[in-house]
Amino acid sequence: MKKKQYFSKSYLLLIMAFFYLPIVYVVFFSFNDSKSLTNFTGFSFRWYEQMFANRTMMESIYYSVVIAVLATIISTIVGTVAAIGLSRSKRLIKETVSQVNNLSMLNPEIVTAIGLMLFFTSLNIPFGFWTLLLAHIIFCIPYVMLSITPKLRQLDENLAEAALDLGCTPFQALIKVIIPQIMPGIVSGALIAFTMSFDDFVISYFVTGPGINNISTYVYSSVKRINPSVNALSTIIVVAITLVLIIVNVVPLIRERKKKNETNY
């Protein structure tokens, strides 16, 4: 029995080593003194300096963040409204809309990407910031709806009805009764939308225009030459995401502990 456990633990350790190897690698080589990606010649902040001096690179971070924030806000609002409407619709509409949303989510990304590319071209919309933003909103909404719909199903219909009877306008009933109850779904939908948008490469690559890059398309375009400042950029992303994930996972724990302490008194 002991021997078996030893084996399973070392197996999992190996898997984790495989998952974290490239991350450790980028962080390590982002401090390298030379341009080499295989020999560590000494410690320096050289590539970080270069990164901050590189305008295209800084712009790509800026566009990634701005597009992700805007796409998240807009797709969350539109997705919430649409999901509420959908939950009250007739079956035929319900099924048609879910099928279309599924089509958008299950389609290979490259197919969605070229579809939008053909669409924007035929309308003579120039590729750039606006096509990029619109494309991100388009592919984020179905995911937002997907995470809100289960919450709507659990919703007690009588509550909104009661609010209306007690003199709420439909709008007030929506804001004061329905939205607060489906908030967890909205929050997780927004989180999914943000990561989808922030990480997206394939769709962005096909619908963006000259001079507008997000982090992914920048990395892709700079891959032909060796450019260690990409390692510095990656390290910053790794640190930022790790911090966010720690905060997201630790804060609820602390809160729970506080609550426990309070109830103990």
């Binding site: 998952f19 974290y20 190897l21 490239p22 991350i23 690698y25 980028v26 080589f29 990606l37 295989t38 990561t195 922030f198 990480d199 490469f201 982090i215 992914s216 990395v219 892709y220 891959v223 990409v230 390692n231 950029l233 990656s234 992303i237 790794v238 995401i241 790790t242 994930l245």
Partner: peptide, 19 residues
């Protein structure tokens, strides 16, 4: 956790490792 880090960034790292 690693899945939250850009796929392209991770693939780029492998390029360096396997170079």
């Amino acid at each position: 956790l690693p899945m939250w880090i850009n796929m392209l960034v991770r693939t780029y790292a492998w390029r360096g490792i396997l170079l």
